[in-house]
Structures are given as structure tokens and as C-alpha cells.
Design a protein around this nucleic acid. Sequence first.
DNA 1: ATGGTTGATTTTCAA
Length: 259
Amino acid sequence: MKIATFNINGIKARAEALPQWLDEAAPDVVLLQEIKSVDEAFPRDLFEDRGYFVETHGQKSFNGVAILSKLPLEDVERGLPGDEDDDQARWIEATVVGKTAVRLCGLYLPNGNPAPGPKFDYKLSWMARMKDRASALLADEMPVVMAGDYNIIPQAEDAAKPEAWFEDALFRPESRAAFRRILNLGYTEAFRSREPRPGHYSFWDYQAGAWQRNNGIRIDHLLLSPQAADLLTGTGIDKEIRGRDKPSDHVPVWIELDA
DNA sequence: ATGGTTGATTTTCAA
């Protein structure tokens, strides 16, 4: 089962590039972030015509997550638990059943800039809530995949110019510590577990020729419960699509599970 | 050096 995460930065703007990549990469499951669309305006037909089931959790203008799956999506839940006042669409869950059942969590973790400030506080409190949900999911002892735009640079080797990110919410010690607290529950960061070498990125800013200079960062991750990590057979980043017409500023990151 | 670009919806915010 090939599972990918892709921050598309707007479904309307990606109406050509996303289906093209789907046809080439043929993932079984895709966790999408930043659909920037309400559910009613999401172009479901684009994906249903290609054999995908579609579940969305959108909002107007910003944020929004979705799941595409070639197998039926069961027990869909929308929203990260823990704060009834949080109305930002950043979390969706569903179960897909292949050879075995896999619980999928698609997430768009808050950016948190400028830091310090209220947006940074929101990022850290959101991560504390995510840790609680991640902990609860482990109790089921089933394969869990939590995938999305984490807006976290885990280590200096995950940035082409780490010195440029020292004060940024994506790399500040508080952010990386919160990320490690989730990992330390027992999750495996799939890409790093299979590729120890530096220099792999999933995001290049639109500004200042970041793509042309390969000034990237790796912030899109797939975290695996122990039962999912045991099924991991491969991982990759489809970086070449960043150089195409009308690209997102992120590229897909994927895993292959024997599931 | 505080630039530069993209998307959604506006004359601005978020990233």
C-alpha cells in the first residue's frame, strides 16, 4: 500500500498538476493539506473519476485537509480533539482496510510564525493536543500512519541553510522538542528511518529562487506506530514535480507499507 | 540586505 502526503497549496490552483502526479505515481492513499476550499467546492469528480474515494475537512480560504483512497474509507473523524474553540480545519482521520486495517491521520500542523507570539503559542498547544491523540491511538496496537505538513524541521540536516531558520517557528527548540515528545511515544519518522543522509527536502519557498538554488527544508513527514513501522518497505520524495509549471511549494513524500 | 512569490480574497493576510 503506497501512502503519500502532499501539501498542495490550494486545490483550485493545482487542478492540473495534482491529477497528473496521481496518474504517474499511482498512490493508493493520499493525505492532502492546504486544500484552501470548503467541502462543497472541492472538485471530487477529478478524483472519483480516477477511482479514489474522497473525504474532506475544509474551510474557507485557508487550511483544509482531505484523504483520497482507492480503498473505502471507514470511521472518518474530522478535527483534532481537545479544544472545542479551535475551528481551524487541520486534522482528519479514517481507516482503510487492505491486507490489514490501517488508521490514517492527515494533518496540517500550524506554522507558528511569528515566534514568539500568539501564533507560536497556538502551534505548541496544538502539538500538545496532537500528542494526546497520538498516545490514545497507540492503545489500539494497530498500524497508524500520521502524515502531513508538520511545519517542523526535525534536525539541522533537514535544511539547506539551517542558520537561516534558528529563530523560526519551524526550527525553534520548543517546536522540535514538541515533535520529539510525539516521536518518543513510540512513533517512527518513516523517511529518516530509511534515509540517513542529509540533503533531502520537501519544501522550497516560491521566493528568492529557492528551488533553483536548492534552498529547501524537509517539513512533510509520515510518523508510524510500531505496528506500522514493522510493515514499512520503502519511502521517497517526488521532488522533480517542484520544477514543473504551476507547482505547489511542497512536493509529495510517500511510503510503501506491506499492508 | 529585511528583498523575493504564490494563493485566496481582496486592497491584505498567510505562508
